[in-house]
């Protein structure tokens, strides 16, 4: 009900078309990447999914992060641009719930993007690699893993967007954060715990290094940590306003 209200507020902002078109464009990337040099990929002695991940994930992860940054900016820009937020705060509703609903919209949209990206991987696997159907449960695991590693980044990005009344500031912080993440080496465990860097990790890399549980635990801890921080922000903001 109140989630529906937050969705309605995004009417005519370009949020949903941006995610739809963006996700489709990103999904084209592995297909084009494989189409231009199929022999490079097919001749590798690895499972199809690992080959596709190694060849495409750094690019896809970066674009997904930009989706999150831009999406969060659009979501909060409608609230701040014409002071609508001030009216919202003077109505009998919880601002914490408003934040949760907005975050759910962003997370739902990124799930949608991940599904389209997974569909593109499935297409590549069947078209160029002669994979059997054991591929399907694996892709679910791989993308499920990516989703879990994305949650802390999504939360952090929403917190930043909710704090910056000026959209350009939150956009700038987000873009800088994503660029820092792309510069960090993915084979360094500690540096990869940076919330913006975790989504660049892949499940095959984690299996090779036995990093699965460190990353899942790190994602869980960061999710709890950012949730606590948001609760504190909501409390403090009312007191210092």
């Amino acid at each position: 009900m109140s989630l529906l209200l937050e969705i309605k507020k995004l009417k005519r902002t370009g949020f949903f078309p941006a995610f739809l078109i963006g996700a489709i464009l990103v999904a084209c990337f592995p297909i084009i990447n494989t189409a231009v040099r199929p022999e490079n990929f097919i001749n590798q002695n690895l499972p199809a999914l690992d080959i596709l991940m190694n060849a495409n994930w750094q690019m896809i992860a970066m674009l997904n992060m930009f989706f999150l940054v831009i999406g969060s900016c659009i979501i909060y820009h409608t609230e701040f641009a014409d002071h609508a937020m001030q009216k919202m705060e003077a109505l009998p509703q919880s601002i914490g719930k408003l934040f949760i609903n907005k975050t759910l919209i962003l997370i739902g949209s990124i799930i949608f993007a991940l599904i389209i990206e997974a569909a593109s991987f499935i297409f590549c696997a069947y078209y160029w690699f002669n994979t059997d159907n054991s591929f399907l449960p694996d892709i679910l695991k791989y993308f499920g893993y990516e989703f879990i590693l994305l949650i802390p980044a999504a939360l952090l990005i929403m917190i930043i967007a909710s704090l910056c009344q000026n959209m350009w500031i939150s956009l700038g912080i987000g873009v800088i954060g994503v660029f820092i993440a792309t510069m960090l080496p993915t084979d360094n465990l500690i540096l990869s715990f940076f919330p913006f860097a975790m989504p660049f990790q892949t499940l095959n890399n984690a299996i090779d290094n036995s990093w699965i549980s460190p990353f899942l635990i790190s994602s869980g801890i960061q999710t709890i940590l950012f949730s606590i921080i948001e609760v504190c922000i909501l409390k403090v903001r009312r007191n210092i306003a």
Binding site: K8, K9, K11, T78, D82, H83, A84, Q86, A90
Partner: peptide
């Protein structure tokens, strides 16, 4: 029912 300072609204709606 309140109305404070500058008008507050969603410009896209």
């Amino acid at each position: 029912g309140s109305f404070i300072e500058s008008p507050a609204f969603y410009g896209n709606l």
